[in-house]
Simulated scan of single mutants.
Amino acid sequence: MSGETKSVRRAGSSDRETVVRLLDAAFQDDPVSGWVFPDEEGRRATHPLLMGAIVDIVLEAGRVEVLADGSAVALWMSVPDGERGRQGHEAAHESDPDSDSGDGDGEAEDEADGPAQLRAAIDPDNERIETMGRLTAEIHPRHPHEYLWLIAVDPARQGEGRGTALLRPTLDRCDREGSALYLEASSARGRDLYRRLGFTTMERTLVLPDGPTLWPMWRDPQPG
């Protein structure tokens, strides 16, 4: 890849549809997507809606980064101390402009119901959407970190180092600033790649009910 191709920019709302299409293409055959949407025909129709909901959350509360040529995208959330569960599916309520402001107790209840709200918005009959959100929130670390929610590379351009090129600026910045990173790898291949980038597998894995395994991974700042 050329230096220009390797450059990373922050995506905005005008990039939404392009980002959703890329995520949908990259994750249609992912083991976790297959578990959430076991019916292949239904997955083709509903999976883009889930990807769109996630992108909306991150555009609102995190950051979306893309390679200059649009071949790879990463979705990041900054998680401060004690904010386990506010990221990921549990943040779905934050992108809802019609959510009731209410009192403090109501807001806490809304946050806890984030996975249920996402399920209701995407596919009310599919309890696995909600289950996925609750299980990933349960294992999420409380320590401050940058959370890599999703990263996707155009299926036609995989194996060319584009994912690593997209991650590198954030990895380097976190090393300089002394910040940790966290992700859940959804395949053994991905897990091994992240290990080469300095991530280590945490003690607890997540085995989805009658489904695939996710590997929570943590990366401490690396010495210069």
Rank of each mutant, 00 (worst) to 15 (best):
65 E>D: 12
66 V>D: 00
67 L>M: 03
68 A>D: 12
69 D>V: 04
75 L>K: 01
81 D>V: 08
84 R>L: 08
84 R>S: 15
87 Q>K: 07
88 G>K: 00
90 E>C: 13
91 A>D: 11
92 A>K: 09
93 H>R: 08
94 E>Q: 15
97 P>L: 14
101 S>K: 11
102 G>P: 04
111 E>W: 14
111 E>F: 05
113 D>S: 15
114 G>L: 10
116 A>L: 12
119 R>I: 06
119 R>E: 10
120 A>C: 01
121 A>F: 09
121 A>N: 12
124 P>F: 11
127 E>K: 09
129 I>M: 01
130 E>S: 13
130 E>T: 02
135 L>Q: 08
141 P>C: 06
142 R>H: 12
144 P>R: 14
145 H>Y: 03
149 W>L: 07
150 L>M: 01
155 P>R: 05
159 G>Q: 14
161 G>T: 06
163 G>Q: 03
165 A>H: 13
166 L>C: 07
168 R>S: 07
172 D>T: 13
174 C>N: 14
174 C>M: 01
175 D>L: 09
176 R>E: 15
179 S>L: 12
181 L>V: 09
182 Y>S: 08
184 E>V: 00
186 S>H: 05
188 A>W: 13
191 R>V: 01
191 R>M: 02
194 Y>K: 14
195 R>E: 08
195 R>I: 03
197 L>H: 10
199 F>M: 06
199 F>L: 03
